[in-house]
Design a protein around this nucleic acid. Structure first.
Lengths: 157, 157
DNA sequence: TCCATAACCGACTGCTTCAGTAGGATTTAA
DNA sequence: TTAAATCCTACTGAAGCAGTCGGTTATGGA
């Protein structure tokens, strides 16, 4: 598996926030119920998103979370990276701040690192997919009719 | 990390076999020494490659492994999948034999799975990178001068 | 006929991460 | 004052990773 449930849950959480009109904070327990995910685990994930500056929080009663900027301006590479850590195909792969790809095996003898070409391509494919997808797209995809009322979740059961 | 060292070591192993002219089997210990990787760990990896039909083995003295087909015909999606298992971005993602992508959250309520669009794109990016790279390319990349002599392996020690 | 070489196989181990739980502290609206 | 919410740290069982180890089988050559 390329990613763990951290990315899965975290993205769903972001989508849930993105579905909200705007200035209304959404409580984590509402998200947990809507997506049927464990609240206490979501707490860990949302902390990462907050530290990455992707969501803001309001404490106390009627508090909750909301997006730190419009969903159109949030790309999924930032979200996934906040949740999973730096996205590299391989342990030996590091990206410098200038975006240059380094491989620790580089000087591993007398010839170029055999796998660098492959991992560079994979890295490129993933990065392109993530950076080319905005949160707004996912919100739209999940909820094409753009109805503003939340899904009637608690009613059944 | 997207992939573990299984993919890394396994691909290097394949490249090492690909560097050989053709019909000469290469022993695992030679590969281990050339790439400075633990022999007994490589045994596990090469077993996966053999079961996937990517390499063939010759037992006994002067035995070893060689590619099951020309390096030009080996694409890296097969190699990585043999080593790491099915390549899906997420636990809930399954690919049917016909190549259709399924998501277990699909009927997870009243709306489409929010993350499917994203993971489909990521999956596509990775698959394209892996399937679009042949072993021959990596061999050429690692060894641009195409010298046919193997790296002086056993001579030391 | 030995013997060195090599593939083959399964069991075991220390370590880290994952996925989640638990318990509390702090903040804030009503 | 209190209920609702964020925030924080510590803990836990399970699984996978990265090997190691010991032994079995096959084979070419002396």
């Amino acid at each position: 598996m390329l990613f763990s449930t951290k990315a899965e849950y975290g993205v769903r959480l972001m989508v849930e926030l993105g579905r909200q009109p705007g200035s209304v904070p959404v409580s984590l327990s509402a998200v947990a119920e809507a997506e049927r995910l464990p609240l206490s685990y979501l707490e860990h994930l949302v902390a990462k998103l907050r530290k990455a500056g992707l969501v803001t929080s309001t404490r106390g009663a009627h508090g909750g979370y909301r997006l730190a900027k419009p969903a159109e301006q949030i790309t999924m590479d930032a979200v996934v990276e906040a949740l999973e850590g730096q996205i590299a195909p391989m342990e030996c792969f590091h990206e410098t701040p200038e975006g240059k790809v380094l491989c620790s095996h580089e000087s591993d003898g007398d010839r170029a690192c055999a796998t660098k070409l492959l991992w560079t391509r994979v890295q490129g494919g993933v990065t392109k997919a993530l950076a080319g997808t905005t949160l707004a797209e996912l919100v739209e995809f999940a909820d094409p009719e753009a109805r503003s009322e939340p899904a009637a979740v608690g009613s059944a059961a």
